[in-house]
Write a protein that binds this DNA or RNA. Structure first.
Lengths: 400, 400
DNA sequence: GCGTAATAGTTCAGTCGTACAACTAATGCG
DNA sequence: CGCATTAGTTGTACGACTGAACTATTACGC
């Protein structure tokens, strides 16, 4: 298994590092790599120079390094209708360096490999029921799946840059510890070693946080906003905060617990001990019950029910109220609804937007937007793999 | 008036700037300046080299530049008990480059000048009543005060690096526009030109945000935390989010509106139109009424009343509830209470902490702290001046 | 009192990375 | 077929950091 684990280190950008000559090179390598990666139409070396402000000579040497490292590929020179020597288009290298997204959730586990172009190279998703499961067994199984997938892409010459393990619970990305994952019935354990993936650089993260990152992947028709609140509605309701295309994690990454914002202290008791949490109005089970369906009914049955004219006023207003608090506290005006909410949005939107307009103080001055998540199913797998690749992009010098 | 206005520009650190040779110099100048500034005991050139990892030769030239620019001063060489050539201690230069903090609030306006050592060089605070006041007149008056103060320090050879104008309302630091300041009765205006301060670099900011920055000024007995939620309780309740010693502003700086987090939708109607906002329980007027005092009674009378055995259970629990939402959404575990809350903390703490422990999901795994603000009165003046000086520190090359 | 060790600070050649300008390469057009 | 045009490369100059050698200044022991 060709992996590059130990060498991966996040670059200290504003940190206490002294800047030397090679710091320039690292910084400009990143700049050039981002220019190649984050542009709709492929750029030539000259185009990159214009876009970055670097001299053409400098760009040439930098691009050559990126090509040699396998991070950038040259397309055949395109002799367009314009005069002059034809430009060599530069594009992200497909199937070279890849990121691995892993996830254990209540009803499935899976692994997904993305390459630098954003393509899914391979994926394996196994449905199951992992409510109150045994972490050692489940993570061992996911580890085996990951090895299988990883060995497969390695056999085709790709390099796995690292992996992210998404879990639905309180995890600290810094220490790698899982404090508690209520819906899995897991607590106080270190998940990464249980995967048995050797020296591959695997980091844990909260599922909703990584799902939010998947929204940035682009490729969809609607451009992803740079800053948004991502809310993932399921049995529990989790959220993530993205500002300037980066996750805002607070001190330990334990933020976005919008499911337990109080909507009405006179409301029903919540599993967390408080009364009237959002989850009691807009959690999947509450929504099902309100619609007269069994708590564990599939989402499709609810959608069918709603299509016949039913409504979700309580859930919509409660969600709007909690989101209004969120926006008032954070000033992030775009809200992306994921998980079950994506499909339910048509029946939630009016109530959510009405409450937001009423309750957000800045509403008269801001264009508040509520939109559906664009990333497909198991978004955390995509987001995790994407985060790995973002790390490559942030420090290409480690690959040169 | 010796000012340096137009030249001030925030350095694009991670931004799309190409890194050149002089970028290294700028970065390392900042590094050296911070090493000199953010250390309890003065460092020598050799000490700075050890602290930063730069070569002694490099540090020498950088320090020489900072000394020439008047940002750093050399103390007489101290011939301590140690062998070897005595070290020259380097300290922030007093009374050289200074920052100007300005503020209009409901009951006062003022100007305060801080130098790089954190000392207050001069200040002028004028009590008054600016409820429903005329912005042109009031800002004109503050501008005159600012010129007076500014000319005074300039006459003593100091350079005013810039100014911050703190206002109690929705302001956008980027555009310099004030949308609305309810307690002043101001709306939709551009405050800076009304000050008439010529080409001095003046930026606006929300009062609570700048007051939060004052907490970082140090000098107090208790070390300021790097990340905290600052809540300023007065007629209105505002908050600021500080993460890693920097303000988190969201998209426009309109965050921290904790006063309008819903505590109980069955509660009293709020001026914002909603029901049961925190302000209706823990705003100054609500607290006064609950204590049986007139809504505009001075804080001292309330404290006297409480000292005789009265309590603030509603306010404490409501504040705890809103803060629990805040912490659940943000994961910032230290809460600093400012404004009127600083003095009221003894009667609020038990209720606030009890509700936080109950309602914050991560409470079992985190040491939640509630503490009183350390900065003195008119903290926004100090915070504003401090932010100006932080800007100098972040880009000393502009002064070389 | 003086030599030695120790520490601070400076000087200078070496190296590295970028800029600029001149050059080569490859195309379209008249 | 030559010229204008654009892409990419080569070579020199310059700026900034490093490391080692050097100077400056003290403490300490004999």
């Amino acid at each position: 298994m060709t992996t590059a684990g130990t060498a991966r280190e996040t670059t200290t950008r504003t940190g206490p590092g002294a800047a030397r000559q090679h710091t320039l090179r690292e910084r400009n390598l990143e700049l050039v790599a981002r220019a190649v990666y984050e542009v709709p139409e492929p750029l030539s070396r000259a185009g990159v120079a214009a876009a970055t402000g670097l001299a053409r000579a400098t760009v040439s040497t930098l691009v050559d390094q990126l090509v040699a490292a396998g991070l950038v590929r040259e397309l055949p020179a395109v002799t367009g209708g314009r005069a002059g020597r034809p430009a060599v288009p530069l594009v992200p290298a497909p199937r070279s360096v890849v990121g691995l997204g892993l996830e254990v959730n209540v009803d499935y586990l899976g692994a997904r490999v993305l390459d630098l172009t954003g393509d899914v190279v391979v994926e394996q998703v196994v449905p199951g029921s992992f409510h109150d499961s045994d972490p050692t067994a489940v993570l061992g199984r996911l580890g085996a799946l990951a090895r299988e997938v990883s060995d497969g892409v390695a056999a085709e010459g790709m390099t796995v840059a690292g992996a992210r393990l998404a879990l639905p619970g309180l995890v600290d990305p810094r220490t790698g510890l899982l404090e508690v994952a209520p819906n899995l019935g897991w607590s106080s354990l270190e998940p990464v070693p249980l995967l048995g993936l050797g020296d591959l650089d695997v980091r844990v993260a909260n599922e909703a946080k990584l799902a939010a990152l998947a929204e940035l992947a682009g490729g969809s028709d609607v451009a992803a906003p740079d800053s948004f609140i991502f809310v993932s509605g399921d049995v529990g309701i989790g959220a993530a905060i993205v500002v300037d295309r980066e996750l805002f994690l607070g001190e330990r990454g334990w933020n976005g617990e919008i499911g337990h914002v109080v909507v009405d202290p006179a409301g029903p008791r919540c599993s967390c001990g408080a009364f009237g949490c959002l989850e009691q109005y807009a959690g999947k089970e509450a929504i099902m019950r309100a619609a007269g369906l069994p708590a564990d009914a599939p989402l499709d049955s609810l959608v069918a029910h709603l299509a016949e004219g039913a409504a979700l006023p309580d859930a919509g207003r409660a969600l709007g109220s909690a989101l209004a608090d969120f926006v008032n506290l954070l000033d992030v005006g775009t809200i992306v609804l994921g998980g079950a909410y994506t499909e339910l949005l048509p029946w939630l939107r009016a109530d959510v937007e009405a409450v937001l307009d009423d309750r957000v103080l800045a509403a008269p001055f801001v264009d508040l937007q509520v939109r559906a998540a664009q990333a497909g199913p198991q978004a955390a797998l995509t987001g995790g793999a994407r985060e790995v690749l973002q790390g490559v992009l942030a420090d290409p010098s480690a690959w040169v």
